[in-house]
């Protein structure tokens, strides 16, 4: 999935990567391409993890992991960081979700009576970005679809999602439906249909994902 997201990167992009699968995208930036990673705690130009020798408690990312800064990075306050995000200055945002629906709504932060950790920066990210990719599994472990007609969980953002990448497919949200754009290798259109609860439009030809 991270490899597929990496194909959406462009030279000169400022990118915010959420925690989990999105973070892995950083490992697949094509050679010769310059991409600057934004971390919402106040770092533009996030680098690799440090070594045992260079680790520094004052140098973390939004996932609270110790990181380094690349050459040419900048560091700023949380208000400045979210000015970049809300102001639409970030070119691509990649984040996870529990559910997405055909209206482009996203639920990613709360499961009532079960999970109450908070939204962190996710609500600002989805409200501020124009170009968002949601990465998640297509269905839950019980087989329940996460691509829905209407999100059942409290929303993170309304009508803001246009692109969804799952373990099974690449889909775009258009006019109240998921449009199946690509299949993951070895995955049938039938399986995707079966595991998509919201309205799904399947074009005549659905190519398999390419990774390079």
């Amino acid at each position: 999935m991270a490899m597929r997201v990496a194909r959406e990167l462009q030279d000169g992009f400022y990118v915010n990567l959420g925690i989990g699968i999105p973070t892995l995208v950083a490992n697949f930036v094509p050679d010769g391409m310059e991409v600057m990673l934004q971390s919402e705690n106040g770092l533009l130009g996030m680098g690799e993890f440090p070594t045992d020798e260079t680790i520094d408690a004052d140098m973390i990312n939004a996932g609270k992991q110790t990181v380094t800064a690349v050459k040419g990075a900048s560091i700023f306050s949380s208000a400045e960081s979210f000015a970049m995000i809300r102001g639409g200055h970030v070119d691509l945002t990649v984040l996870g979700a529990f559910e997405v629906d055909v209206q482009g709504n996203i639920a990613s932060w709360m499961i009532p009576n079960k999970l109450i950790k908070g939204m962190g920066g996710a609500m600002d990210l989805v409200a501020g970005a124009d170009n968002i990719i949601v990465t998640m599994t297509h269905a839950s472990k019980n087989g329940d679809s996460k691509l829905l007609d209407t999100c059942s969980l409290p929303l993170t953002g309304k009508g803001c999602i246009k692109k969804v990448l799952t373990d099974l497919a690449w889909l775009e949200i258009q006019d109240g439906a998921f449009v199946l754009k690509e299949r993951a290798p070895g995955v049938s259109v039938e399986e995707i249909k079966e595991k998509t609860q919201g309205k799904l439009i399947v074009p005549d030809h659905v190519p398999e994902m390419q990774f390079n």
Partner: peptide, 25 residues
């Protein structure tokens, strides 16, 4: 929301009682 929280502090300190944001709509 994290950005709203940051802006609430910034605005508070800057004498701005409230602000509009798309976050959370």
């Amino acid at each position: 929301p994290q950005g709203t929280l940051a802006e609430k502090m910034r605005a508070g300190g800057a004498g701005i009682p409230a602000f509009y944001t798309a976050t959370g709509v």
